[in-house]
Amino acid sequence: MARANLLERLHTIQDTYGYIPENEINKLSDQFDLPRSKVYGTIKFYSMFYTEPTGKYMVRVCDSLSCHLNDSEGLVTAVKNYLGIADGETTEDKKFTLEVVECLGHCGEGPVMMVNDQIYTYLNENRAIQILKDCM
């Protein structure tokens, strides 16, 4: 049962630091008696875990099929242009990280975007940009 709760521990660490720092991986590896490579490999599987700091606002725009049919591509382009960054990048001022993600589970309300824990539905380009402006 060595690995029980590893996932939840990783969440807690990320909730604290915003990412999972190296020394925390070392500690987990000790506590769970696992090679640190295994903890690292587990972290790196998940798209919502980060081993490097991200922007203050994590912006996730869904581009899976249902949203795609509701022009999420246009939304993605607008957000990219507004923030001046590509998928996976962080703005220079460390405020925003943008990720084009798979389904967020609000397929009936697309296109959708998540900013940190908040989900925004039925978006159009202007509203999305307003939401980002409000974060500033």
Binding site: R3, L7, E8, H11, F32, T42, F45, Y46, S47, V101
Partner: peptide, 24 residues
């Protein structure tokens, strides 16, 4: 248990690996 962004965890055996803290 909170997932962390991995569709494969919907597969029941992957889900179990995930709960166990392994690569799912």
């Amino acid at each position: 248990i909170r997932g962390a962004g991995a569709y494969i965890c919907g597969d029941e055996t992957s889900l179990l690996n995930s709960i166990e803290g392994q690569r799912p």
